[in-house]
Lab assay of single mutants.
Amino acid sequence: GKELVLALYDYQEKSPREVTMKKGDILTLLNSTNKDWWKVEVNDRQGFVPAAYVKKL
């Protein structure tokens, strides 16, 4: 099944490779191999968020 993460904080994208999320959002985790930036999918968009801003559910 898909792995989900919870947004712990708001995050505003700073580049086209990133995505914006709001605290409390549930996101689909696509890739967590990089310890600093995790790739997630939110609202049919894929991009990176800081790993410290999310936690695995």
Rank of each mutant, 00 (worst) to 15 (best):
47 G>W: 04
3 E>N: 11
57 L>F: 09
49 V>H: 00
9 Y>R: 15
50 P>H: 02
36 D>H: 15
17 R>Y: 13
23 K>A: 12
12 Q>P: 06
32 S>R: 08
7 A>W: 02
51 A>K: 07
31 N>L: 10
54 V>R: 01
51 A>Y: 02
20 T>H: 04
12 Q>F: 14
34 N>F: 08
37 W>Y: 07
30 L>R: 04
56 K>W: 08
34 N>V: 05
33 T>Q: 12
2 K>D: 08
14 K>S: 10
55 K>A: 13
8 L>H: 03
26 I>N: 03
45 R>S: 06
57 L>T: 06
33 T>L: 10
15 S>T: 12
47 G>T: 02
46 Q>E: 11
17 R>A: 12
53 Y>N: 05
14 K>C: 11
16 P>H: 10
25 D>W: 13
7 A>L: 02
12 Q>I: 14
6 L>E: 10
54 V>Y: 02
22 K>R: 13
27 L>K: 00
4 L>V: 09
19 V>W: 05
54 V>K: 01
31 N>S: 13
4 L>W: 15
28 T>W: 13
22 K>S: 09
31 N>M: 09
7 A>S: 06
54 V>T: 04
41 E>Q: 14
16 P>G: 10
43 N>R: 14
46 Q>W: 09
42 V>Q: 15
50 P>Q: 02
25 D>N: 07
24 G>C: 08
47 G>R: 02
9 Y>G: 05
30 L>N: 02
48 F>I: 07
41 E>V: 10
30 L>K: 05
34 N>R: 10
53 Y>V: 06
28 T>P: 15
55 K>Y: 11
40 V>Q: 00
29 L>E: 00
5 V>I: 08
42 V>D: 12
41 E>P: 00
48 F>A: 02
55 K>P: 01
9 Y>C: 13
32 S>I: 07
4 L>M: 12
32 S>H: 09
14 K>F: 06
41 E>F: 07
42 V>N: 15
4 L>H: 09
51 A>E: 03
22 K>N: 08
45 R>E: 05
57 L>Q: 04
16 P>D: 12
44 D>H: 12
47 G>S: 02
45 R>F: 05
12 Q>G: 08
45 R>I: 08
1 G>R: 13
40 V>E: 00
18 E>G: 13
30 L>H: 05
40 V>I: 08
1 G>T: 15
42 V>P: 00
38 W>T: 03
34 N>W: 07
42 V>K: 15
20 T>N: 06
12 Q>H: 14
15 S>Y: 07
55 K>V: 15
25 D>Q: 15
3 E>P: 12
46 Q>N: 09
27 L>Y: 11
23 K>I: 06
39 K>M: 15
50 P>F: 04
15 S>P: 05
54 V>W: 01
53 Y>F: 13
22 K>D: 04
2 K>T: 12
45 R>W: 04
33 T>D: 15
8 L>N: 02
1 G>A: 14
57 L>I: 14
43 N>V: 12
2 K>V: 13
27 L>N: 01
11 Y>W: 12
36 D>S: 12
40 V>H: 00
29 L>C: 07
52 A>V: 10
2 K>H: 12
6 L>W: 07
14 K>W: 04
6 L>A: 06
32 S>E: 15
14 K>T: 12
13 E>D: 05
14 K>P: 04
17 R>H: 13
23 K>E: 07
8 L>P: 00
12 Q>A: 13
56 K>M: 11
54 V>H: 01
42 V>I: 15
38 W>A: 03
43 N>S: 10
50 P>G: 02
39 K>Y: 15
15 S>V: 04
18 E>D: 06
37 W>I: 03
18 E>Y: 06
49 V>Q: 00
6 L>G: 02
44 D>W: 08
50 P>R: 04
5 V>H: 03
30 L>F: 04
3 E>I: 15
55 K>G: 08
54 V>L: 15
18 E>K: 04
44 D>M: 11
19 V>Y: 04
16 P>M: 09
35 K>C: 11
16 P>A: 13
2 K>M: 12
32 S>F: 07
37 W>M: 06
32 S>M: 09
25 D>T: 08
19 V>M: 13
25 D>F: 05
34 N>G: 09
43 N>G: 15
1 G>F: 14
33 T>F: 10
29 L>Q: 00
30 L>G: 01
9 Y>K: 14
12 Q>L: 13
27 L>A: 08
46 Q>F: 08
10 D>Q: 04
37 W>Q: 03
45 R>H: 07
30 L>E: 03
30 L>Y: 04
14 K>I: 07
21 M>V: 09
21 M>P: 00
13 E>S: 15
57 L>H: 05
13 E>W: 06
6 L>Y: 11
2 K>N: 10
36 D>Y: 15
29 L>H: 01
23 K>G: 05
56 K>Q: 09
56 K>A: 08
10 D>N: 08
22 K>F: 12
42 V>G: 15
21 M>A: 02
9 Y>A: 12
12 Q>V: 14
2 K>I: 13
6 L>C: 09
10 D>R: 03
51 A>Q: 06
1 G>D: 13
35 K>R: 12
34 N>A: 09
10 D>F: 05
5 V>K: 00
25 D>Y: 05
43 N>A: 12
24 G>Y: 05
44 D>Q: 12
22 K>C: 11
45 R>N: 05
46 Q>L: 08
10 D>A: 07
1 G>W: 13
40 V>L: 04
22 K>V: 09
33 T>M: 11
39 K>G: 06
38 W>Q: 01
27 L>D: 00
27 L>E: 00
20 T>Y: 05
42 V>F: 15
37 W>C: 06
21 M>H: 00
6 L>I: 15
19 V>I: 15
29 L>G: 00
49 V>G: 01
20 T>P: 06
38 W>E: 01
27 L>Q: 01
37 W>L: 04
19 V>A: 05
33 T>P: 04
10 D>L: 02
11 Y>I: 01
48 F>S: 03
9 Y>D: 07
13 E>T: 09
16 P>C: 09
39 K>V: 14
30 L>A: 03
27 L>H: 03
40 V>R: 00
1 G>Q: 13
38 W>F: 07
39 K>I: 15
24 G>V: 00
